[in-house]
Every structure is written in structure tokens, then in C-alpha cells.
Design a protein around this nucleic acid. Structure first.
Length: 215
DNA sequence: AGCCAGGCCTGCC
DNA sequence: GGCAGGCATGGC
């Protein structure tokens, strides 16, 4: 299996029927909502199942809301998100992020329209992957997430890169330069942000399956 | 029972 | 500007 550009990889993964079980075509349930931002923080180095437990706790407590999180008690918040690990750090960062969104944008829909990648990266607790997850899955921007799975998978195909952003531009250029082929693959003109979201999702699902079937 | 999970920041060099 | 160490629970 030779991979010359990211379209080759996409076509390879597409043939595996990896997202068939997903309710949401973008893979990330409830994507495009405020909840996605909180989930992007909670899922840092954490299993998705643990994130779901914390989200249920937040919903039950009635504080899965921009204003309420911005004004919540830190001790209570950290307790509610305990299942996701690193709860002290994550609680402080979630609260601060919500405070900043509230102060600088006013509400989620304004944040959705106006937030920049750099603004996100300036927030404590948001690195490259979280920023891009928020942008793509939360705000439906045309940008692709890179994670450890992606790096490992590319390495297996003999593809080495210098940095996060090198991988990202390689992935995105290969998509942009082959849009016609991708439309053929999907049988319709799928929006670019969805291509990126599903591409990253396929990488994650494929990698998880591989790990399961190994040894 | 130890390893890993959909990372990030700090503090050294 | 690269890299170890810390952060922490839960599931296998």
C-alpha cells in the first residue's frame, strides 16, 4: 500500500466503512454546539466514554451552559468532571475559557462566527489539537485535526513530518487538490469542513480498530 | 497490575 | 525550541 498524498489515504480509509455506526455524519455527536467546546477540553488524553459521564453530570447539574460555567464554583465543577481525569486543571481551564468567551464574544453564536485559531491558542489549556477540534467540530470551520493517531498512522506508511502544522497542511492540501475525486467517492459535493471532520474521524476509528485486532 | 486514553503546560536544558 | 514530568480517572 503506497500513500503518495492524503487523498490516497482518504480513499484507503473510505473503503473500510469505518463510520457506519455513527449517528452524526460528522462523527462527533452534538457537533456544532457549545457542548463540543467543553468536550474538546474534557477529551484531552482521555477516553470518550469518560467524557460522556462528565457531560451527563454537567447536564444533570444544569450547568452545561456558557454563562453558568463562567460563573460556577470551581470545586463543584471539578467534582462533576471527575470521571474525565485531570479534573482540577480541566475545571479551571473550562471556567476561564467560558469567562473569556462570555466577556469577549457575549454568546456562543457570536463566538462561532468570530473566534480565530489564534484566539483559541492563546487560551490556557488549548493547544493545536484542541483548537482545531473546536474549530472543525464545534464551529464547522474548514480545518483538519491532527492527533497522535494521525502521526502514528502516517509513520507506518513511511511518512515523517517536522511538526503538527506540516502534517496538517499535507493532509489539507491533498484534499483540496483532489476535490473532484472526493466528490466522486462520496457521490455528492460534500462540504469541505465535513470532509476534514470525517477524514480525521476515519483515522481515529481505523487506528482504534487496528489496536484492538493487534497481537 | 500495569498500560493507555481523541493533550497541555511548566521548567529545565 | 525540544523534551521529561506532572496532571488523574477508569477500563482492559
Amino acid at each position: 500500500m503506497e500513500i503518495y498524498n492524503s487523498f490516497d489515504l482518504l480513499a484507503f480509509l473510505k473503503s473500510k466503512n469505518l463510520l457506519a455506526h455513527c449517528k452524526n455524519p460528522m462523527w462527533w455527536e452534538n457537533c456544532g454546539s457549545f457542548q463540543t467546546i467543553i468536550e474538546a477540553i474534557l477529551t484531552q488524553n482521555t477516553k470518550w466514554q469518560s467524557v460522556e459521564k462528565s457531560i451527563i453530570n454537567l447536564k444533570n447539574a444544569g450547568i452545561l451552559d456558557l454563562k453558568k460555567l463562567a460563573n460556577c464554583d470551581l470545586i463543584i465543577l471539578s467534582h462533576l468532571i471527575k470521571p474525565s481525569g485531570f479534573f482540577n486543571q480541566k475545571a479551571a481551564r473550562i471556567k476561564m475559557l467560558c469567562e473569556n468567551i462570555l466577556r469577549e464574544f457575549g454568546d456562543f453564536s457570536s463566538f462561532k462566527n468570530r473566534a480565530s485559531r489564534q484566539w483559541l491558542l492563546n487560551q490556557k489549556g488549548i493547544g493545536f489539537e484542541s483548537a482545531d477540534s473546536i474549530l472543525n467540530y464545534g464551529l464547522f470551520r474548514e480545518i483538519m485535526v491532527v492527533d497522535k493517531y494521525t502521526q502514528k498512522l502516517l509513520l507506518r506508511f513511511g511518512l515523517e513530518f517536522e511538526s503538527y502544522e506540516d502534517i496538517q497542511s499535507w493532509l489539507m492540501h491533498g484534499v483540496e487538490e483532489n476535490l473532484d475525486k472526493i466528490y466522486d467517492l462520496y457521490k455528492y459535493e460534500i462540504p469541505l469542513y465535513q470532509i476534514y471532520g470525517r477524514f480525521h474521524a476515519k483515522i481515529v476509528e481505523f487506528s482504534k480498530n487496528e489496536a484492538k485486532n493487534k497481537y
